[in-house]
Write a protein that binds this DNA or RNA. Structure first.
Length: 254
DNA sequence: ATGTCGCCTCATAGGCGA
């Protein structure tokens, strides 16, 4: 079973890219972030054999799950703040597995309200991850975490030092997720591989020089970790015309 | 500071978020 995640930076601008990638890789489940649209074009993907559910918001954020198997929505909002209106969270059951799609707040600039929101959001997620792992349902939590976990996950730590994605606090919270028992699928299979990124800035030819960061992650509860066979970043869509600034990453589970 | 996208509107230019 293949489960993938991809920040597509506007579903309307990138629907063709998504279709091409579905054709090429044929994943069972694909999580999308940054839809940037009020409506999700479900019909387009139904023609491809994918059911879809989405949480949308005009112009900003937005997450969707595409699946070949039936999707049962559990929750469309992260617990812990009823006033939070951002479309950043979608929890569903697919084939007996809990699938959680997240678009974690960016948090820039450091020291702003946005940074506080990021930290609060990460703490809310920590609580949920704690309660999920205490249960017996196999759980996958994936998406754009907007966190660079370690120095190895960016081309040059000094150029990210002042960025919200690389601050000690979000990085500590990310580690706290792993300390609960979740497995970072990519890093567990590629422990020392450098230069493995999922995002490159549009400017300064960042992709050509592989000046990127690894911020899109797939975390697995222990029972899914035991089924982990592969985890790869597919850089090819990033090299196409009018690409998203992120590349898709996927796991293969036995 | 800057670079580049995609979205929106007090809309064909500028601001915001990334």
């Amino acid at each position: 079973m293949i489960v993938a995640t991809w920040n597509i930076n506007s579903i309307n601008a990138r629907a063709q890219h998504v279709k091409e990638w579905l054709n090429a890789v044929n994943p069972d489940v694909l999580l999308l972030q940054e839809l940037k649209a009020s409506e999700f074009p479900s019909l387009v993907f139904r023609e491809f054999g994918y059911e879809s559910v989405a949480v949308t918001q005009k112009a900003y954020n937005g997450v969707a799950i595409l699946s070949r198997r039936p999707i049962e929505v559990v929750s469309t909002a992260l617990a812990g703040d009823d006033a939070d209106e951002h479309a950043r969270f979608l929890e569903a059951m697919i084939d007996g597995m809990r699938v959680v799609n997240i678009y974690l707040p960016n948090g820039n600039p450091v020291g702003s309200e946005k940074f506080i929101y990021k930290i609060t959001w990460m703490n809310r997620l920590l609580k949920q991850m704690q309660s999920w792992i205490a249960g017996s349902t196999p759980t996958l939590v994936a998406g754009d975490y907007n966190v660079i976990p370690e120095d190895i996950d960016c081309h040059k730590p000094s150029s990210w030092m002042h960025d919200a994605l690389f601050q000690p606090e979000p990085r500590a919270l990310y580690r706290a997720y792993l300390e609960l028992g979740y497995i970072d699928a990519f890093r567990s299979l590629h422990p020392d591989e450098k230069g493995q990124f999922t995002f490159w800035d549009y400017f300064r030819k960042a992709f050509d020089y592989n000046r990127g960061i690894r911020i899109d992650h797939i975390l697995l509860s222990p029972s899914l970790g035991a089924r982990l066979e592969r985890c790869e970043i597919d850089r090819s869509p990033r090299g196409k015309e009018k690409p998203s600034d992120h590349a898709p990453i996927f796991v293969k589970l036995s």
